[in-house]
């Protein structure tokens, strides 16, 4: 914790090395969090890049009060995704293109992976907004319950309860159940 505090203080003074470390620590997780919520690789890349540029711009105003830095950064990512949805509600997306990890050259495996991702994205998409958020933050962004609670503005107990209902709904959506556990 102390190390992270020190790192952020250095980043606030525009220390490139500190930024590089923050980038390395969070880039993949932020990318995954964004990518599971949007449809294409280009969008995921643009949004992820923008998250870090926004973080760079805003980091001088970040105040260390014991609140996790991850929560602050994911909050930026969350806002970026919401803005994206607003903007892209106007666009008809006709095809999905979200290449997954490219280190596996076997096309059959790649297609299977893409189908798995689409299945998960579809299942997450069938949840309520709050359920989507808790699943994305906890299991895609790999955040702790405490960090998730900070981002969502809830207490940990509420996040645990929401996580329970979200996983139940997700399980039903993944198994193709028509009851998708909507809680309006």
């Amino acid at each position: 914790m102390q190390d992270e505090k020190n790192l952020i203080e250095r980043a606030q003074k525009r220390d490139p090395e500190a930024f590089a470390q923050i980038y390395e620590a969070y880039f993949d997780r932020i990318y995954r969090y964004v990518a599971i919520r949007v449809g294409t690789q280009t969008e995921a890349e643009d949004l992820t890049q923008q998250v870090f540029l926004n973080a760079l711009e805003s980091i001088p105003s970040y105040r260390w009060k014991g609140a996790p830095f991850a929560a602050w950064l994911f909050r930026i990512a969350h806002n970026q995704v919401i803005d994206h949805y607003r903007r892209f509600s106007r666009v008809q997306m006709t095809a999905l293109e979200m290449p997954v990890a490219t280190h596996d050259p076997d096309p059959v495996d790649m297609i299977e992976q893409e189908m798995d991702i689409e299945r998960i994205r579809g299942a997450i998409g069938a949840l309520t907004d709050l359920q989507q958020e808790v699943i994305s933050l906890r299991f895609v962004g790999e955040l702790s319950t405490a960090e998730t609670a900070k981002i969502m503005g809830k207490n940990e107990g509420a996040v645990k309860a929401l996580q329970h209902s979200a996983l139940g709904a997700l399980k039903r959506a993944l198994s193709g159940g028509r009851d998708n556990g909507k809680e309006v």
Binding site: F27, A35, A101, Q113, I117, F139
Partner: peptide, 12 residues
């Protein structure tokens, strides 16, 4: 499953 599959979403 979400953890495992989403981990394959790696940036280029």
């Amino acid at each position: 499953m979400v953890r495992e599959k989403s981990a394959s979403l790696e940036p280029r």
